[in-house]
Design a protein around this nucleic acid. Structure first.
Lengths: 231, 231
DNA sequence: TTTATTTCAGCTTAATCAAACATTAACAAT
DNA sequence: ATTGTTAATGTTTGATTAAGCTGAAATAAA
C-alpha cells in the first residue's frame, strides 16, 4: 500500500460520471476524502493504493463486476472494509446474494444523496470497531499491522514509539501521565522503568513526526504529562 | 498425460498467430507456462497431453469450434478446468450460451491484454477451491498435495516450511507473530517449541525461495513477527 | 540409515534506558 | 521589570538489553 489517507475516506466505484460527481460532492460536504473509480479494474487499483475507509460499489461495472470486487476484497485482501452496494436491482434474492458476498448495506438506485449519507454514517458507526484502523488529525494507525501514517506518509516507528502513538490516538486531546503511558507500554507491569525514559521516547516520536510535518502534535503539560492534540 | 506442468499453466487456443503471441508474452510475464494451439484439433491434443490449469479459448476456430471444445472438455473429459472464452460476438444471447456450455468467463475482442490478465487471475482465484490451489504474487500452492511453486518453478519444501508458506498465503500483507505461526504448525498446541525455531524455519524457507528469485517476500517486522508481501 | 526438526551459542544490529547536562517555565525576591 | 531559584522537561550520550540471524550440533522422525 503506497499511501494512506487521512481521516475518513471513501472510494466511489460507479461508471456513470454524473452519479459519481453527485455522490462525491455530498460526501465532501460531510468532510470525507473522496476517491473515484469508473470501472472494476480501476477500483482494484485504487483500493490497493489507498485502502479507503469505506467502499461505495456499483454492481454493474465495466471490466470487473461489483460482485467480483466485493469477493476480492473479502477473500483475497481479507479485508473487513465496509462495503455499501449501489444497484438498480431490487429483488430480495439479489439483496441476499449481496449480503452473502459480504456487503454491509444496500442502496437501491435511484437513491437520494441524503439517504446515502445516512447509510454511510450508519455503516461506519456499525463497523468502526472491526476496521482495524484508527484515525485522528491526519494520523492513521493499524494496531494489528503495526503501521502508522501521517497525512499519507508512512512513519517508521519502533515498537514503543508505535505504542505511545497508539495510546495517544486512543485518548486524543487528553493529558496522559508518564505513569499511564508506562502502564500501556508494559501491560502487566513486569518492569520498573524510570519516568524519564518516556521523555526520550517522546523525543524520538516527535522527531520522526517532525520529519514529515513541522507541526507539533505532542504537547507537554508541565507537571502532568503529555497531550496529543489536533492542529 | 506425458508431462506434468509446474505451477500455473495456460493453453491459448487461437488461430490468429498475432493475438496468440501477444497473449503469450503477457502471460509469461506473469509467470504462466504457456502452451499454444492454432485450431480445435490441436487444442484437444494439447489438453490431453498437458492438462493445463486454464483454457483461453477462441470461439471461431478451424476444424473444431470453440463451443465443441468446451462441450468436449466438460462432457467427455468431465473436467472442471477453468475456461475463458475469447470472442468477437457480443450479444447477451451468445454470452449466455457460452456460460451454458460451461465457460467461466467471457472476454470480448478486441480486448486489452491487461484486462485479460485480470480476468485470468480472477477466474483462477474463483475456481481455486475446486482446483485446490492458492496463489499470491507468483506463488502457487496446493495445500492438499503439499506442493508449492514460485513463478512456475517448483519449491522443494519440508512439511513445516510448506505450512509456513501456507499460512503466509492465507494472510498476505499481514504481520504474523511467531506465536500465530506456531499455533498453525501445531494446530492443537501439543508441543511447546521455542520461538527461535520459527526463525530457523523462516531462514530455510527464505533460502529456498532465494534459490528461485532474488526478491525477499518474507519481511521481518521487529518486535512483531513476519510479513509475507507482494513485490 | 537419512532427513527433518529443534535447540543452542555466538554474533550483529537495533532498541531501550538512565545518567549527565542543558534548557525552559514558574514564580519568588529584589 | 529583572534577577535568581527551583523543579520539570529536553537533549545527548554511551551502556545495557533485546531481537533476530546463523551455523552447527543434538534430537526426533521417517
Amino acid at each position: 500500500m503506497d499511501k494512506n489517507l487521512i481521516g475518513k475516506s471513501v472510494l466511489v466505484v460507479e461508471d456513470d460520471p454524473k452519479i459519481r460527481q453527485l455522490v462525491k460532492i455530498y460526501l465532501q460536504k460531510e468532510g470525507y476524502e473522496v476517491i473515484e473509480a469508473a470501472d472494476g479494474l480501476e477500483a482494484k487499483e485504487k483500493i490497493e493504493q489507498f485502502d479507503p475507509c469505506i467502499l461505495l460499489l456499483d454492481l454493474m461495472l465495466p471490466k470487473i463486476s461489483g460482485e467480483e470486487i466485493c469477493r476480492w476484497v473479502r477473500e483475497d485482501l481479507k479485508s473487513m472494509m465496509p462495503i455499501i452496494m449501489l444497484t438498480a436491482k431490487v429483488s430480495e434474492k439479489e439483496r441476499i446474494h449481496g449480503f452473502k458476498l459480504g456487503a454491509d448495506d444496500y442502496v437501491v438506485k435511484p437513491f437520494s444523496p441524503g439517504e446515502l449519507m445516512v447509510r454511510v454514517e450508519a455503516v461506519l458507526r456499525r463497523t468502526a470497531s472491526r476496521c482495524g484502523k484508527l484515525t485522528f488529525t491526519g494520523f492513521t494507525i493499524k494496531p494489528a499491522k503495526g503501521e502508522a501514517w501521517i497525512r499519507g506518509e508512512q512513519l517508521d516507528l519502533t515498537h514503543f514509539e508505535f505504542k505511545i502513538l497508539h495510546i495517544f490516538m486512543q485518548h486524543p486531546n487528553q493529558v496522559l501521565s508518564r505513569e499511564q503511558i508506562l502502564d500501556f507500554l508494559y501491560e502487566n507491569n513486569e518492569k520498573a522503568v524510570s519516568d524519564r525514559t518516556i521523555d526520550v521516547h517522546i523525543k524520538h516520536l516527535r522527531e520522526k513526526i517532525k520529519e514529515k510535518t513541522p507541526k507539533n502534535y505532542i504537547q507537554t503539560v508541565r507537571g502532568m504529562g503529555y497531550k496529543f492534540v489536533a492542529l
